[in-house]
């Protein structure tokens, strides 16, 4: 098309296009209306209920009482325990998961080992909740398979120091069980980004295996490793069902505290304490996810 013709066409159409565009924009927006209506009702309003409720008193007037109540001894303890359990299981899961991911990557992208391990991890990372708690009760419970075997065949009583399965040590063990597969899934792509040429280059320049890991692969993988660890932390921190099914006494973790705030008779004037704790959880998770995003950007600089 020649230039003058285009020019006349544009000037002739200019006014009508703006009108048409305005109408079209409205019609276009109509297309995303159902989605936004749905998420407003079932995601944004619930989130707002939590946020606003955390700052509202029993008479619905704004107050900071709920937030200051978070400083109560038992709530602080619950947060400390939740954060400890999440951090310990995240570190354990990250270390063991990274090891598993590494040996799987060395097998090559199309190997049977890799396919089996990745699909098994896909399932096991989802394997949380009640099912997982029951699996461990069947394994390490008082009449569990391993417990009975160790007691009857080897004379070892794993619960001689008390039944730890239904307490924090048990939670750490059970959480690690779903953290390792999750680590494999989120860390594999970073390991895939490591090129064999980099190792060859190190070797050609006289670098040892230690030197390669210390100065080449290590620094490259560090952001991905840290980021994955943070993701694992958030995963453990938000978990509820496993703890609910496993822990029989008390409410050591924040999600279990929220449950008791929701289900039991609440103290007068403390109706919104559960919302304040929920807000506290969102703040922790949001902070962790923000750091994760930062590290993710750093990772993608080299390993994409």
């Amino acid at each position: 098309m020649s230039a003058p013709a285009t020019g006349t066409l544009d000037t002739a159409q200019a006014p009508t296009t703006t009108v048409v565009r305005g109408g079209r924009l409205l019609r276009d927006l109509l297309g995303v209306l159902p989605f936004f209506v749905f998420v407003t009702i079932f995601l944004l309003i619930p989130t707002l209920v939590v946020v606003i409720g955390a700052f509202a008193g029993p008479d619905n007037r704004p107050t900071l009482d709920n937030i200051t109540a978070l400083a109560d001894g038992y709530i602080v303890d619950a947060f400390v325990r939740s954060i400890t359990v999440s951090a310990v299981t995240a570190l354990l899961g990250a270390a063991l998961g990274a090891l598993l991911a590494y040996v799987v990557v060395t097998a090559g992208p199309d190997s049977l080992v890799r396919r089996l391990v990745t699909s098994a991890c896909g399932v096991l990372a989802q394997f949380g909740g009640v099912t997982l708690a029951f699996a461990f009760i069947a394994t390490l419970g008082l009449s569990g398979f391993v417990t009975v075997f160790l007691r009857d065949s080897l004379g070892i009583d794993i619960f001689s120091g008390g039944v730890w399965l239904f307490d924090l040590p048990g939670l750490v063990l059970v959480y690690t069980y779903f953290q390792i597969p999750l680590m494999v899934i989120v860390f594999l792509p970073a390991l895939d980004g490591i090129r064999p040429q980099w190792r060859e280059a190190t070797e050609n320049l006289g670098g040892s295996t230690w030197y390669y890991w210390r100065h080449v692969a290590g620094p490259l993988l560090a952001p991905a490793f840290l980021g994955s660890t943070l993701l694992l932390f958030a995963n453990a921190f938000s978990a509820y069902a496993t703890a609910a099914a496993l822990v029989s006494q008390g409410a050591p973790l924040v999600p279990l505290q929220i449950r008791s705030a929701l289900t039991s008779e609440v103290l007068l004037g403390r109706e919104n304490l559960g919302k304040a704790m929920a807000l506290g959880m969102v703040v922790v998770v949001a902070l962790v996810m923000w750091l994760y995003g930062l590290l993710q950007r750093r990772t993608s600089r080299w390993l994409d």
Binding site: S238, P255, R259
Partner: peptide, 24 residues
Amino acid sequence: VVEFVSLLPLTVPAIVLVVGLAPV
């Protein structure tokens, strides 16, 4: 926007969501 909203439930754990879902 759509991406942010769709990924939002990752930051709002189910245990938190249920607190806000009760009135809904």
